[in-house]
Amino acid sequence: MSHHVTPPGTGRKLTLVVLGLAALIAAMLCAFALPSLHSGPHHVPIGVTGPRQAAEAIRENVDGPAWDIRLYPTPEAVEKAVLHKDVAGGLAVTGHGVDVYTATAGGPSATSALTALGDGVAQQNKTRATVHDLVPFTDDDPRGAGLTAALMPMIFGGIFPALILGSVFPGHRGLRTRLTGALLFSVVAGAAVAAVLQFGTHSIDGDYGITALGVILGMAAMSTTLLGLQALLGMGGFALGGALMMLLGNPLSGLATGPHWLPDGWATVGRLLPPGASGSLLRTNAFFDGTGAATPALVLAAWAAVGVAFVLLADRRGRRATPDSHGAATSGTTDVSHPELVTR
């Protein structure tokens, strides 16, 4: 009768795996739940103009954890600041009432809160508020559903190349092929996503070429990062990268609500991760003519550079682990475990 012998260290490995998975689930819960529990306006910058007494009264009563009040000399200056993304919206107290300047495409949640704030200011001044949406969503998608839905395809566009190409072109020999394939996929899929959003669902405006380049950069940043982690650390690296993009980057991206609706710390982390930077770049290219695109583009370029560096490091390590064909030839021996050495 044969007896099954458990390899030594199995219990320890099993314990580590179970604890690691439990920690991952807990981190996932925190990433999704905590930002939602503490969501709301957080230091949302808004421009205010009007008679000095009225503007100062708004700043004294409103400025605080929710709103960051910035005074401007004229309503035109407030409008310009909104269009340039210096502020998320604005209030102008005039003899005819209170003008509320919003940019719904820049952050629908902040727009709703600012509209309510404008109504409150108008009531205090015993007048009425008029809302001017300077940067709205498109007429075909007034709630921005297409923009919000775009993030998941972009994330999966980074995950799928590492997963599928790793199966088709495995090992060190297929590493450079996987990198080339991931970059080519980013170009094709990024152009397709931008085309669907602009010409299919009509969810975005702006220059298609610039928008497509931004989506391509976002997908390339995610795919190269995942490829690099997978090449260096195996499936553990792939799992780490996937959790970083999906479980942390997705809920902290702020694409659905706007960048000022998450707590400050969470929002900063989200904008530094590829999903958040990709969403910010898509929003600014599609609705703000590229104003403020430099920061998210640099973040994505940095992630892409790190991913490529990881791939090259793994490639170099793999080459060192491969027997030297020149050395085998000069020693008069042939390594039959590497048949490619015979055909060279």
Rank of each mutant, 00 (worst) to 15 (best):
124 Q>C: 06
125 N>G: 12
125 N>I: 10
126 K>N: 15
127 T>I: 08
127 T>K: 02
129 A>C: 10
130 T>R: 06
130 T>A: 01
132 H>R: 10
133 D>V: 00
133 D>M: 00
133 D>C: 00
134 L>Q: 04
135 V>A: 00
136 P>H: 01
137 F>H: 05
138 T>A: 03
139 D>A: 14
139 D>S: 11
139 D>I: 12
141 D>F: 10
141 D>A: 09
142 P>Q: 10
142 P>A: 10
142 P>I: 04
143 R>I: 11
144 G>S: 13
144 G>V: 14
147 L>D: 10
147 L>I: 15
148 T>G: 11
148 T>D: 11
148 T>P: 01
149 A>L: 14
149 A>P: 02
151 L>D: 12
151 L>Q: 15
152 M>L: 15
153 P>T: 05
153 P>I: 08
155 I>T: 13
155 I>D: 03
157 G>S: 03
158 G>W: 06
158 G>K: 08
158 G>P: 08
158 G>S: 07
159 I>N: 04
162 A>H: 09
162 A>Q: 11
162 A>Y: 03
162 A>G: 13
163 L>C: 04
164 I>A: 15
164 I>P: 09
165 L>S: 02
165 L>M: 04
166 G>R: 02
166 G>D: 07
166 G>E: 06
166 G>V: 00
166 G>S: 05
166 G>M: 03
167 S>G: 11
168 V>L: 14
168 V>E: 02
168 V>A: 12
169 F>R: 08
169 F>K: 05
170 P>A: 09
170 P>G: 08
171 G>Y: 02
172 H>Y: 00
173 R>Y: 02
173 R>S: 12
174 G>A: 10
174 G>Y: 12
175 L>M: 09
175 L>R: 05
175 L>S: 03
176 R>S: 05
177 T>V: 06
177 T>Y: 07
177 T>G: 07
178 R>T: 01
178 R>I: 03
